[in-house]
Simulated scan of single mutants.
Amino acid sequence: MAWNQPGNGNQNDRDPWKNQGGREQGPPDLDEAVRNLLSKLGFGGGNKRPANGGGSSGGAASRGFGVIAIIAVAIWFIAGFYTVKEAERGVVLRFGQYSDLVESGLHWRPVFIDSVQTVDVNNVKQFQSEGFMLTQDENVVQVELDVQYRVVNPRDYLFAVENADRSLAQATDSALRYVVGHSSMDEVLTVGREVVRSRTLELLETMIQPYQLGIQVVDVNLLPARPPEAVKDAFDDAISAQEDEQRYIREAEAYAREREPLARGQVRRIQQDAQAYREQTILKAQGEVARFEQLLPQYKAAPVVTRERLYIETLEKIYANSAKIMVDVEGSNNMLYLPLDKILETQRGGATQNQLQQQKEQPLTLPQQRQPTTQSGGMNDMGRTVDRSSGRG
């Protein structure tokens, strides 16, 4: 028998919807369940359904919406706090339009009304511009330029142009092509690299100034340019030749700086030696003139005695530098002992002294002066012929 059929003695125990109060009941009311929940939260009354339940239900719902609104406002307020980093600046937009510029630190904004875009203004950014370019002498080179820049005006950087970074890259490419197009290939590859770099920087700053990009170009660096691969070997040889030329020029200049002081010193020494020789010759001539001037009065007073004395003095000078031995074979037959070792030693000593004397009197750097040589025979100052072998005049 089913649990809900008549005659079941345990109908009240088995019936989940017990018949209480003398009338039948259906499932629980949804409004009553909501009121019970609100009463547990502190917003409702008892658990009995009032006669007019519409007003009480509307008040509880309004109070629930108020709590939800308060919670939403709290969340909205907390969500408005934001932080700007030390290296950044914040650009505040109110309904999409620029409003203010904030520094680094903690700030608050009304969410859904203001928005903030941060811009890095301290760190230096960089990019490279490269490509094949035509030089003034109609040669193609591959040039690479490294550009370093930083943001100085966040408002202009974000809103002056559509994309400031791309605008700077396009201006850099235009400036570099203009400068390379007005330079020769040798200037781009070797000797004029610094000129190309400085001219590109100057032209780039001039080009971006009217656009107000909010960017400051810190520096540009011209990387090593390369010719096309098809002619790279030939250009490498040309560059090596230019480098060798510069190296040879520097070596020649260094050699000239080394040799010039030595040459100037030698010239100075030769001039001083010539001056000394000149003064020596003049003084010797003056001495000879003075000696003959003093001898002339004596010769006039006693010509014979003076002549003999001059003759004897001349022979003394000659025999002092000669190794010959005079032997009188007519007047005596005595055997003479000749000291040959002394004679040879005297002869060698006399030759050495003559050489030293000539070296002292005549500098090596000057043309050899003609020195008077000793003749085997000649006229003395008195007109007499001297025979050195016999010692008679």
Rank of each mutant, 00 (worst) to 15 (best):
Q209R: 07
D237N: 08
R384D: 13
A175D: 05
Y255G: 13
I312R: 15
A252Y: 09
A256H: 08
G64Y: 14
A241D: 09
Q5I: 05
S62G: 09
P367Y: 00
F81I: 03
E205T: 01
K360I: 15
Q136M: 11
G45L: 09
Q25L: 11
E251D: 12
L189Y: 02
E194D: 08
T385L: 06
S129G: 11
Q5W: 09
G22S: 03
T373M: 12
Q266F: 11
V73E: 10
L366P: 01
L223N: 10
A351E: 12
Q11E: 14
A351V: 10
L223I: 00
S104W: 08
G105P: 07
W76E: 10
E229I: 10
N19D: 11
A60G: 15
E243L: 08
L204T: 04
N8R: 03
I70L: 15
R257W: 08
M133W: 01
R259F: 10
E32D: 15
Q25P: 04
R250H: 08
R348P: 07
A323F: 02
R264W: 02
R150I: 01
L296M: 11
L310A: 14
S174M: 08
R94N: 05
T190A: 13
T206K: 13
N47K: 14
S104Y: 07
A171S: 08
E345K: 04
L356M: 06
D146G: 08
V111I: 09
A274S: 11
D120T: 04
D219S: 15
E288H: 07
I68Y: 06
Q126A: 12
S167M: 09
N153T: 00
I68R: 11
M207V: 12
K342F: 10
K125A: 07
G391R: 08
A169Y: 04
D15T: 03
N153M: 01
R35W: 11
Y178T: 15
N36V: 10
Q25S: 11
V180C: 01
Q371F: 14
L356A: 11
N52Y: 06
D381F: 15
